[in-house]
Amino acid sequence: MKKSLLALVAALACAGAAQAQSTVQITGLMDVYAGSMRMAGDAHRTTTVGSGGMTTSWMGFTGKEDLGNGLTAEFLLTSFLRADVGNYGRFNGDPTFSRDANVALSGGFGTLRLGRSMAPNFLPTILANPFGDSFTVSPLVLHANISTAAWGFGNLTTPSDTGWSNQVTYTTPSFGGLKANLHYQFGEQAGASNKANAGLNVMYFGGPLTLLGFYERAKINNPVVLSPMDTKTDWMLGGTYDFNVVKAYATYGQAKVDTTNFKGSTLSLGLDLPVLNKAGTVKAAMARTKVEGTLNATRTTASLGYDHFLSKRTDLYAVAMHDKITDVKSGTSLVLGMRHRF
């Protein structure tokens, strides 16, 4: 009896140790704003309560397990949210877990990830502008991903969404602050084995200096229905430098579609100015995109805002934005919002 009891205690102890090596978390971010919006070419102004003023709202599950011998397994299963209406996804028809749905194995060799995850363009773009991953007020992100009545989807510079499905991603170890991500998305098109997306990004983090770049060659659209499209290439180089009193940002990139003679070139500049003992930052950014081919026009967007942190997890923000496209009426927008991480 004593031996049986000791065996049970030992088994429970081992189970507890194994459980301690694994973690699963519910995590996410809620971002809601009130705004008065008018983009270039819009016929009328819209007053709205929206989701994702500074960051697209999301929630989901993350997990890690220590496998021993320097190996770690993990998964990401996260969904975008429209917190203003209570729906999942960035838009109607967006996959439930369009933000992340993948598994990964990490070790001294780096990380190998399988499933839906970020496209090569995403990290360099959000790290190289002071408004980060805002699809509402970041000029650089807007020019890459968000259409207006006058601009149109065919003139955006991102080839195929900020996330790719059916993807294999390899992340190298860090070499003195230098790291790269290699991306390959299977097109899964019968009889069209060459229809796939591929790309990479490279990032260097060295004290106050950050250098970033990416290249993509896309033949498959994302994210709802994967189907062949005209081959589009996109690249960008950028960097930031933190002078302590101010942080400066700059990027330059180009996108091309040979079959339609489309070419878009984008220059962006920005700065972050910490104030109130770094409890808040004044943010300013500008992006200018010149498009040739299907539409010959120039778009210039500028944003000025203030972001104030009430804690490490909660901040309040206010941003004014001006949007101008050649030969159409310009637009101005103002948003006031709150962001909370959990």
Score class of each variant (00 low, 15 high):
200 L>A: 15
230 D>E: 13
7 A>D: 11
259 T>G: 02
219 K>V: 13
254 Q>V: 10
55 T>G: 07
212 L>P: 13
336 L>S: 14
269 L>C: 10
237 L>D: 05
81 L>T: 08
34 A>L: 03
213 G>H: 14
53 G>R: 02
83 A>Y: 10
233 T>S: 12
290 K>Q: 08
245 V>Y: 08
289 T>Y: 02
322 H>R: 12
184 Y>M: 09
8 L>D: 07
63 G>I: 05
280 G>S: 09
339 R>F: 03
113 R>I: 13
216 E>D: 14
139 P>W: 06
284 A>E: 02
167 Q>E: 15
184 Y>H: 15
45 R>C: 03
310 L>G: 01
93 G>M: 10
302 A>P: 00
225 V>R: 13
79 S>G: 11
161 D>N: 15
186 F>C: 03
146 I>H: 06
218 A>F: 12
178 L>T: 13
310 L>N: 03
144 A>G: 05
313 R>M: 00
124 P>K: 04
32 V>F: 02
19 Q>V: 08
7 A>W: 05
31 D>A: 09
298 T>P: 01
284 A>N: 02
199 G>H: 14
78 T>W: 00
260 T>G: 13
317 Y>E: 03
126 I>W: 11
225 V>L: 14
176 G>D: 14
148 T>P: 06
269 L>E: 08
284 A>I: 03
198 A>V: 15
90 R>I: 08
169 T>L: 15
138 S>D: 14
145 N>E: 10
12 L>P: 02
44 H>G: 00
260 T>Y: 13
59 M>Q: 02
276 L>G: 00
125 T>C: 04
199 G>S: 14
190 A>H: 13
257 V>H: 02
247 K>V: 05
141 V>P: 08
